[in-house]
């Protein structure tokens, strides 16, 4: 386990009153994910085979690998979003702080409240204002949103996402009125607002320009202080910049399932990969 952030000890709750996203108040939550023999299927097609992997809390873990290696599929299995595709399913065990997310009687809805997600393309709800987009998780649950508490939550989440200064004067404008990079940060604020322990990011920068990408990468580093961040990326340099640990996936041929080849601290994996295939990929000889 090479989590860069120290694993905090439990502290007494400070209660709900102000609802801040202050790291100190979330110290108790861990967000340690363990994958054991995970297989993902699309119908009868096995897309990801037998992945066992530890994802440390409060750190950025990057999934890298060539297209079609199943890294996004595996990511979506972690919050049980994989199974919403018709015919798709996953088996094996994925535990979050020891609780099996695929256990009997576990409601995927509950899993997704604990494991948030940011998508490849920014997807704010077009019919909602910026403010309502941040609160979307609560609005969806039918919770109140007009109050001062809501205002505070909006501000703290938008600050968190480094978006507050840019949008504080137009919170009632539709979310779609923002630029691509701003929209993606809005989506991060939206994901943070439901207080997950884990943030999954599926190539969050692939549709963004370099400056916006940099802003999001910086944000990822910060978020890792309080959340377990798992990011799928095509961009090797990005993985090197933002991640503490890297998992390399590959696929041996068309129709074959993707497999985990190697995982370890990013620095080690990049400088001294143990498996030749990893070195080839990192050196740009493949993929």
């Amino acid at each position: 386990m090479t989590a860069t952030a120290p694993i905090p000890t439990a502290t007494p709750s400070l209660g709900l009153a102000a609802l801040p996203i202050d790291p100190d108040q979330r110290k108790g939550a861990l967000g340690q994910i363990s994958l054991r023999g995970v297989n993902c299927y699309y119908g009868s097609h096995l897309a990801v085979a037998d992945v066992s992997l530890e994802i440390p809390p409060r750190a950025v873990t990057a999934f890298i690998g060539p297209s079609g290696c199943g890294k996004s599929t595996l990511l979506r299995a972690i919050n049980r979003l994989h199974e919403v595709i018709l015919g798709a399913r996953a088996d094996g065990s994925i535990t979050l702080d020891g609780a099996n997310l695929y256990g009997n009687g576990v409601d995927p809805v509950a899993v997704r409240s604990r494991v948030g997600m940011v998508f490849q393309k920014a997807n704010p709800f077009p019919a909602m204002s910026i403010r309502d987009n941040v609160l979307a998780g609560l609005i969806i649950r039918g919770q109140r949103r007009g109050s001062k508490v809501g205002d505070d939550l909006v501000e703290s989440c938008l600050r968190r996402a480094h978006l507050w200064d840019e949008v504080k004067d137009r919170l009632r404008k539709p979310g779609g009125s923002l630029s691509g990079g701003q929209q993606q940060r809005l989506c991060i604020a939206r994901a943070v607002a439901v207080r997950p322990e884990v943030l999954l990011m599926d190539e969050p920068c692939s549709a963004l320009d370099p400056i916006s990408t940099l802003a999001i990468e910086e944000l990822m580093r910060e978020l890792a202080r309080d959340y377990t961040v798992v990011v799928v990326t095509h961009n090797m340099a990005q993985a090197g910049r933002v991640s503490d640990r890297t998992a390399f996936f590959s696929v041996s041929g068309a129709g074959q399932p993707g497999r985990l080849i190697e995982a370890g601290p990013t620095a080690d994996l990049f400088s001294a990969p143990k498996v030749p295939a990893t070195r080839d990929y990192i050196d740009g000889r493949f993929g």
């Binding site: 919050n79 979003l81 919403v84 809805v109 509950a110 997704r112 409240s113 948030g116 997600m117 998508f119 490849q120 393309k121 997807n123 709800f125 077009p126 979307a136 998780g137 969806i140 649950r141 039918g142 989506c187 939206r190 994901a191 439901v194």
Partner: peptide
């Protein structure tokens, strides 16, 4: 992607 965004926020199918 919009439907998945809803689900990823912990929405039930109806809420989505």
């Amino acid at each position: 992607t919009l439907m998945e965004a809803g689900l990823a926020l912990g929405a039930t199918r109806w809420e989505m």
